[in-house]
Nucleic acid binder design. Structure first.
Lengths: 141, 141
DNA sequence: CTTGCTCCTGTAGCCACTACAGGAACTAAA
DNA sequence: TTTAGTTCCTGTAGTGGCTACAGGAGCAAG
């Protein structure tokens, strides 16, 4: 059994974040020592590491909770996982596209900017009236 | 002069967001009607539109505030704008790279997933011990 | 005058953490 | 055994950038 510090080291999850996950019910409450300290089994540490890796892949907590419940009852889990992963891939691709369009827009706006110029052409055109609004749908980065 | 509803329409900024920007000091407090309603001049609406466009480009509020103060005192603004825009471009590029790496990782993990499989290979390898940790630095999406 | 719309203030919620404050419990050296 | 240092505990508040109420007031048209 390991204290929260060791569990943090081994799982790569910040101590505060481990307690947060416990509060939110992402991972089950661990046992406690006589003095009231959390004690983690290797299995519980593996779960924390799993959550961390999923977060690194960009999955939201809600999906990770689904993953965790699927690993408990391990019948027919793979199809669901595949769907969830594919949806997440679509989101990642959408974000990449958005950011790429953003980059182009920003590049063309700032291209005329230079050290000496007094009235900045980028700021100017951003302040101008509504010609070519061209709003991104609801891309929030 | 325009009420907040019209200002919202013309600027593309949500009503609640306009009030939020006012509270936070992003835009100056507008005048009020006899009955206590906010009244916006075309200039103030242009400012709101400017903020919205900068947000669409992914700039954080703090940078947008710098932009706004630069448009007030319009001496030598362009060099600073250029630097800020370039830094932001770097961040966008870093995000794109991160997401691209994420996509590759997720693709290779989920490639062996399929409808029939019982023990999911993706979940399995995410749960496994620390071989090839390969942590992204601090990419949070 | 009434209906329905817009507006007002103030507060709480979202996501996924992170950062304290103030105190208790362990560990190791003197 | 005392002491110092470290780790842990709970609880609360803050981050960014909004969004969503609740409960009320103002205003325009029929």
């Amino acid at each position: 059994m390991f204290t929260i510090g060791k569990a943090s080291e081994q799982s790569g999850v910040n101590i505060e974040t481990i307690r947060y996950y416990e509060r939110e019910g992402v991972v089950p409450k661990p046992g406690r020592s006589a003095g009231g300290r959390r004690l983690y089994s290797p299995d519980e540490i593996a779960k924390l590491r799993f959550v961390r890796r999923c977060r690194d892949l960009g999955f939201p907590i809600s999906i990770i909770q689904t993953f965790l419940s699927l690993t408990e009852q391990d019948d027919r889990s793979c199809g669901e996982v595949k769907t969830l992963a594919e949806n997440h891939l679509d989101e990642i691709n959408a974000k990449i596209e958005n950011l790429t369009r953003l980059r182009e827009a920003l590049l063309s706006l700032s291209s005329n900017c230079d050290e000496g110029t007094a009235a900045c052409p980028m700021l100017d055109s951003l302040m101008k009236d509504g010609l070519g609004e061209n709003r991104p749908e609801q891309a929030r980065h």
